[in-house]
């Protein structure tokens, strides 16, 4: 079993519904975005190409963050999901530095919402590193990750990549991950 996500860039228009859903579902602090949408622009006016690139934790099969973690707080489950054991994390941020996809966030006092009131933030996160967990609690209950569920354009597909009948398996055939030559083997793929 290996959970994977395929994002169709031809459908993403950068509306950030996924980002909002993610922030609500995980009640993340200010500046912490487990998932976010980057704007990529190329060319020169008026011949400009622009597209939106949603990024999140890529849940690599060969994760750099896991390799560098000094306490074993980062681990990979049998479902192919990279998770963080909050009780083990000592907040050294080596993983944040090492992650090639800027998916990890260190949660400190500064990340508390600035200029807006705090809402539902758990203090037990303070001083640890956090990131996208593919909404594994929801997924185990049979639900979809918040970002997948929220996307009005159905640009995101989530499922078991090892199941040959799954939609995600079919899409992966013509999808490619980011930084694919580096051997991280991410579980998030893109179609363009």
């Amino acid at each position: 079993m290996k959970y994977a996500m395929v994002i169709d860039l031809t459908k993403c228009v950068g509306c950030n519904a996924c980002t909002a859903a993610c922030k609500i579902d995980n009640s993340t602090g200010f500046g912490v975005k487990y998932g976010q949408v980057l704007e990529v622009e190329a060319g020169r006016f008026p011949d400009v190409t622009k597209f939106y690139l949603p990024i999140l934790c890529m849940h690599c099969e060969n994760p750099e963050c896991l390799k560098v973690c000094p306490t074993g707080a980062t681990f990979r489950t049998k479902e192919g999901v990279v998770l963080i054991d909050r009780d083990r994390c000592m907040g050294c941020r080596y993983c944040v530095v090492a992650c090639p996809y800027m998916a990890r966030y260190f949660y400190n006092d500064l990340k508390r919402p600035l200029g807006v009131p705090r809402m539902d933030l758990e203090d037990e996160r303070l001083g640890t590193v956090e990131k996208c967990d593919f909404c594994i609690d929801r997924v185990r209950e049979g639900d979809l990750p918040a970002c997948v569920k929220a996307c009005p354009y159905e640009a995101r597909t989530f499922g078991d990549a090892d199941d040959p009948n799954s939609r995600v398996h079919g899409l992966m055939a013509r999808a490619k991950p980011l930084k694919e030559d580096e051997g991280f083997n991410p579980s998030v793929y893109y179609i363009w």
Partner: peptide, 11 residues
């Protein structure tokens, strides 16, 4: 510098 110095020993 650590977010949780109390967990240093875990390393």
């Amino acid at each position: 510098e650590l977010g949780r110095p109390s967990n240093f020993w875990r390393s």
